[in-house]
Design a protein around this nucleic acid. Sequence first.
DNA 1: GGCTTCGGACAATCAACCTA
DNA 2: AGGTTGATTGTCCGAAGCCT
Length: 222
Amino acid sequence: MPTALDDPPSRVYPLTASESPPMNIYSYSSKDFANPTVRAKRRQVKNACTNCQRACKKCDDARPCLRCVKYGIGDECVDSQRKERKKGVKRGPYKKRDGKDRAANNAEAQTGPPPVSNSATPPQVPQYTVPMPSYPAWYPAYTTQERPQDPAGALYPPAQYYLTPMPTHQDVADYQNQGYYQSSIYHSAPYMMQRTQLPYPVYSNAVPQKPGPNDVLSPHGH
DNA sequence: GGCTTCGGACAATCAACCTA
DNA sequence: AGGTTGATTGTCCGAAGCCT
């Protein structure tokens, strides 16, 4: 039986020191994560539904997608058609390689030099995958100091992150009563996420960031 | 505050091109 | 043959404006 593990991400980490900062699938604002050097790569669905495509809004792999469900147009949620790619387009001579890694060039061109670590060498982030929930994830309202850390230094969401059933309204109320906050981000399912895609700094000596304002719900859900 | 619109930044794809 | 490059195509962020 196929599982989420059968559909790994197209890109395999770990990062090398010369690569761009860790990616995650979360929406984010640069204001949410104060350190601009850890700006995460935006992840896109392979094929947005026609409604999300028209609205230029984030879609997900599920059909109906969460946005269509939210607006009560789930029955209209169908994959958009993709044009066939042009063939036979001639290309000019390629630039000579200069021996420098292209990813490093791109990362530097787009985000400036790689993040400066306080230690001499940034820790390697091990290749690792965790299942992603298909609904807003719930996190305990821990402080940055309490946030669990793994041996490799990655700041890590706690076990409560990995909820499997869709929470009921009662669950939601219970979570809020227990002091949990809800991520505003909805996740596609089934989906694989790598540790480096988590919305936390990956370097052990990075200054821990509190969750962004968009990730926090008041007890009333706003 | 929620929704729609939309410009444009950015990501993904994949065929042409390059090289070992 | 397999890796690299870059053009093409698509997604969706974020700001602005409108509506209730």
